[in-house]
């Protein structure tokens, strides 16, 4: 559903920029609870408000509108009138190495800048693991990420 995914992107961008809900709410002139509802998808955010937020968080509008799984190249499921709350039919979980790696291999281009020493170190350690170990790490990171952005099982 559209607004839950917009809310998640919003939360992600806010946290990335290091703002608390209170701080960002003050900057855009709304209450913390309104911002919290935007992030949960419980209140619809409209263009004018999102434009303000996009400017503060230095992101293009499209960033908030693309589905969280856009990098996988999957068409967005029922993004229409929010009505379209139904989640896609549950897919059988593919546990193969390739399938687990796919989300990471296809990360959007903007994440591919210079790597910090920490990232390089992490990559070296990751590459030194067995395929099974790599899958474990990916599963853990995916779980962590979902927890951070409050995934509701939409993707």
């Amino acid at each position: 559903m559209g607004y839950k995914s917009i809310g998640r992107q919003l939360q992600l961008a806010r946290e990335e920029a290091g703002y608390s809900q209170e701080q960002l709410a003050a900057k855009i002139g709304c209450s913390q609870s309104t911002l919290s509802n935007y992030e949960k998808g419980k209140r619809r955010i409209y263009l004018a408000q999102l434009e303000k937020i996009a400017e503060i968080l230095n992101k293009p509008i499209e960033y908030f509108l693309r589905p969280a799984d856009y990098h996988r190249g999957e068409p967005e499921s029922q993004s229409g009138e929010p009505g379209n709350q139904s989640s896609p039919a549950p897919k059988k979980k593919d546990t193969s190495y390739q399938a687990n790696l796919l989300p990471i291999l296809n990360m959007p281009g903007e994440d591919q800048g210079e790597k910090t020493a920490l990232e390089q170190n992490l990559l070296r350690l990751f590459q030194s693991l067995s395929p099974a170990g790599q899958i474990l790490v990916i599963n853990f990171v995916t779980w962590l990420k979902e927890r951070e952005v409050g995934c509701n099982g939409e993707f």
């Binding site: 559209g2 619809r44 409209y46 263009l47 999102l50 434009e51 509008i61 499209e62 509108l65």
Partner: peptide, 16 residues
Amino acid sequence: IGRKGGAYLLLMQTFD
């Protein structure tokens, strides 16, 4: 109408 990427939000506001 509106900036690139914003039409979906415009549409929802118009509906609402």
